[in-house]
Amino acid sequence: MKQKGIGKMSGHSNWPEWIYVAVVIALMCYVGAEAWNVERLIEHVPEDAKLITVTGQQWLWTFEHEDGTKEIGELHLEKGEAYRFEIHSKDVIHSFNIHEYTVLMDAVPGRVNHVWFSPNVAGEFDIQCREYCGLIHYNMRGTLFVEDKGA
């Protein structure tokens, strides 16, 4: 009510501002709904996803496959399969990232985090650390090799 009074005193209508605020709120609702939906879809882990245990430590990545094979700095996966990463850290916080596949999850000491993806293009991709972890953070890199099935 007060707003209206002051609006009248200064000789202008407040309707444009109300409409403007309504448009902004509507846009935010749209953004929120879209984001919620996409997040819900990508958080749904397929049941037959294979487990890869990822361990970050200053300043390298270690990968352990379901069958117990270990790799350091390199990860070999098959195209068309789904993989679930279980991410650990031995010392400080790191962030496991395959940018090409928008895979990102922090490696937090004392916690286990999960993220999953399914590579659909064969090739070599960069693995990097995205959370500051000290001296050689800039070079805490690895390579993901996606191979065709049975290759």
């Binding site: 996409v38 990508i42 397929p46 049941e47 037959d48 789904a82 596949y101 928008t102 993806f117 399914s118």
Partner: peptide, 13 residues
């Protein structure tokens, strides 16, 4: 089963 979402496509979309 057997068909997986392409998270890259969803996120970039």
């Amino acid at each position: 089963p057997g068909e997986y979402l392409d998270r890259k496509e969803l996120i970039w979309g």
